[in-house]
């Protein structure tokens, strides 16, 4: 039984703290995975978050993964989405710090390089908006994380969140406009400072 399966099963058995133990595991795995993949992959290929997450899933859960129930899958993918989010945010922060801190040390970064220079800022702003959404409506935020950071489809995400596809679609639509609004405003704030 893999570590993750073990953690998942403790969650199943009501150990609330276990969730906290899941994230670092997924995070580390994803990170490592991404690093390896990037080193091996033909450069120029873009790395799909979905593929990464699924690969992490297979690796972390091993053969047991096939038989795991949807609650645990939901736990895992939520953790994975969160992990991906953190990885990307970290990366963006570093790039941003670098941007302001001057010096061209970008080439030293180990694995990730966000596609466009502007995106590192975007992603931070996006994350801010996501944080607000989380306060306002956690389910919608979770939906965004799953879809955006973990690359889930509508159906997969709806499945994991245990909501209907229609609801997921509706949530998705509303979450996007809410976030867009904040983002728009956030841009403007940047202009001021």
């Amino acid at each position: 039984m893999s570590d993750v399966t073990r953690v998942l099963s403790t969650i199943e058995h009501g150990d609330d703290q276990a969730g906290d133990r899941l994230l670092p595991l997924v995070y580390c795995e994803l990170r490592e995975l991404a690093r390896q993949r990037l080193a091996r992959e033909k450069p120029g290929q873009t790395l799909q978050a979905t593929a990464l997450v699924h690969e992490a899933y297979l690796r972390l859960l091993g053969p047991e993964g096939q038989s795991i129930d949807w609650t645990n899958r939901a736990h895992f993918f939520s953790a994975a989405a969160e992990a991906m989010r953190r990885i990307l945010i970290e990366n963006a922060r570093r790039k941003r710090a670098d941007k302001y801190g001057g010096q061209l040390q970008r080439q030293n970064f180990e694995a990730f390089d966000i596609a466009a220079p502007a995106l590192s800022d975007d992603i931070l702003a996006l994350d801010d908006a996501l944080a607000k959404l989380e306060v306002e409506d956690p389910v919608k935020a979770q939906l965004v994380k799953l879809r955006y950071f973990a690359g889930m489809t509508e159906t997969e995400a709806a499945d994991i969140l245990g909501i209907s596809l229609t609801t997921a679609q509706r949530h998705w639509r509303y979450a996007r406009v809410r976030m867009l609004k904040w983002l728009k405003n956030a841009d403007e704030v940047d202009e001021i400072s």
């Binding site: 991404a34 990037l38 080193a39 992959e41 450069p43 120029g44 290929q45 873009t46 790395l47 799909q48 978050a49 979905t50 990307l88 080439q107 970064f109 694995a111 990730f112 390089d113 966000i114 596609a115 995106l119 992603i123 965004v144 879809r147 955006y148 950071f149 973990a150 690359g151 639509r173 509303y174 996007r176 406009v177 809410r178 976030m179 867009l180 609004k181 728009k184």
Partner: peptide, 25 residues
């Protein structure tokens, strides 16, 4: 009204996951 206006812009927003372009090997 603002949200409605944004809705027409939202198409495509968050649709594609953040891509990562690896360093040149």
């Amino acid at each position: 009204e603002e949200l409605l206006a944004l809705d027409s812009l939202a198409n495509g927003f968050l649709e594609s996951p953040p891509l990562s372009v690896p360093q040149i090997d």
